[in-house]
């Protein structure tokens, strides 16, 4: 277990060395935060209580999602391309002959990255949003704690989905198509474009049941205190179940991949 701690720590350090990239990311997230904030203000002025949120809650949704964007890799980034590249070039062979578990290794590395990006890319946009707009941020530290737990579960789900996508490279070799599909699905069904609560009827119900909603929609709802008590436990259970199922699927696919597939090149 100490190995995976060290992997996470080195991944954290690795992302911390890219200072300029971090600053550029913070700037972009903040600018997009403003654009989306004014868009949401326009929307919620016409339709107050859209999706069950008041305007302050809607704005909190905007700024929290900007703060989580990089950490949850909602627009890509993270380990997915790196792993695909290693599979494509055959460098994966090096990872395979190490006495370490491939999935745990990449999970640790991705969590290290996310931890850095939550701090490095998340704090400033959220603070700017809170200074410039009237947000519905909770005052209770317990709610913040619940939020962080939900973020962690969301990261697990996000990792599990992207790990599955990356592993398809063992069979497809060129991941561009799968990347595009999975990127679009993630963009929409995580709630990055619009909160999933605004979609009515069966479509909305289905959207809120899919794993992507565990990455952003659910953590933000936990922060907003939309669900408390039993509802909160339900949120955690929803995220936890998806995390377990998808991580298990990843292990299964990893087993198939390493047993069957040719390591490219060399």
């Amino acid at each position: 277990m100490r190995l995976y701690g060290a992997v996470a720590a080195s991944s954290f350090r690795r992302y911390a060395t890219y200072r300029v990239a971090t600053a550029a990311g913070v700037f972009t997230n903040t600018v997009f935060g403003f654009i989306l904030a004014y868009t949401f203000i326009a929307l919620w002025s016409i339709r107050p209580h859209l999706g069950g949120y008041d305007q302050a809650q809607a704005l909190t949704f905007v700024w929290t999602s900007q703060a989580m964007l990089a950490a949850a890799a909602l627009l890509g980034g993270g380990f997915q391309q790196e792993l695909q590249e290693r599979i494509r070039t055959g460098d994966i062979a090096i990872d395979l002959y190490r006495p370490a578990d491939l999935q745990l290794w990449w999970l640790a590395s991705d969590l290290g990255r996310a931890a850095f990006q939550l701090l490095g890319r998340g704090l400033v946009p959220l603070a700017v949003g809170a200074l410039c707009f009237d947000l519905a941020l909770p005052s209770s530290p317990l709610v913040w704690l619940a939020f962080l737990a939900s973020v962690l579960l969301g990261l697990l789900v996000g990792f599990a989905v992207r790990y599955l996508v990356a592993l398809t490279s063992f069979w497809l070799l060129d991941g561009a198509g799968v990347d595009m599909v999975s990127g679009l699905l993630c963009l929409f069904f995580s709630g990055s474009l619009l909160p999933l609560t605004v979609f009515p009827g069966a479509f909305g119900d289905v959207a809120r049941m899919l794993p992507w909603s565990a990455m952003l929609q659910v953590p933000v709802d936990v922060l907003l205190g939309v669900n408390s008590g039993a509802g909160l436990a339900g949120s955690f259970a929803f995220q936890g179940c998806w995390a377990l199922v998808l991580l298990a699927a990843g292990r299964l696919l990893q087993g198939l991949a390493t047993r069957k597939v040719v390591v490219q090149g060399g």
Binding site: A93, I94, G266
Partner: peptide
């Protein structure tokens, strides 16, 4: 294992 054309380092 040492691969001349790949690195095991980070």
């Amino acid at each position: 294992v040492v691969f001349g054309q790949r690195t095991t380092l980070w």
